[in-house]
Amino acid sequence: MSFRDWYRIDRLPTIYCVGCGNGTVINCTLHAVDTLGWKWEETVFVSGIGCSSRAPGYIKTDSLHTTHGRALAFATGIKLARPDLHVVVFTGDGDLAAIGGNHFIHSCRRNVDMTVICMNNWIYGMTGGQGSPTTPRGAITTTTPYGSGEGVFDLSALAVVAGANHVARWTSYHVKELTRAIQTGLETPGFSLIEVLTQCPTAYGRRNKLRDVAETVEYLKDHAILLQKYNRLVQEGKPVPEDMFTVGEFIRRNRPAMGVPP
């Protein structure tokens, strides 16, 4: 099987805008799932509400497209009731960190055995570009027309302190690394968060001088700094450019988890 066989062919093309990174992230996820030889009958995709959360509708497994922010709670029910099923969650930054923030930290704390893929595009895409908890300071959105003045959540750091067993961050440019990270997440018992910085040319790019899709992806590539390199720079007391973000694996550990198949 190839990752392409996991798609509901009759649902393609997706509703996503031209150059939306979500499609890439679905590719990588399905590639990881396929590489592990998982059966589609035994895999369930769950999501909340948002562009990113439309992903399960394009995948031929059983899938639950739930309410805004609550995907992890629904997924917890599925996983605890049927630990033998593989549960993968697609979510967005608003879905996971704003309205679903409480479910997010508690799912990490419980360390429920599931893999959560967050398409972090720094914006509320589906509702047309409002600020989210990950909107960078100064960025223009429809609800921060003079530039966002709020602090920003580091989703991966949050997941680490909240207790997740595996946390990694990549971008929609790093398809190979991302696929490998997702695969590790799927294999790690317990809660795994894969944060993917991804482009939303329509709702974010258009307002923030990142209109061109390729340019945005180049931006993601150029501003990503490998965690190890970042740590080395810090250790050596060298300056780290301000607008860089770290990518790589933040944690992999083996804390007691819930819903792990016997």
Partner: peptide, 17 residues
């Protein structure tokens, strides 16, 4: 197996085969 395959993976619209 797929060799390289970068274009297929990044293509957000599953258009490359």
């Amino acid at each position: 197996r797929t060799v390289c395959g970068l274009c297929q993976m990044i293509c957000p619209d599953q258009a490359i085969r």
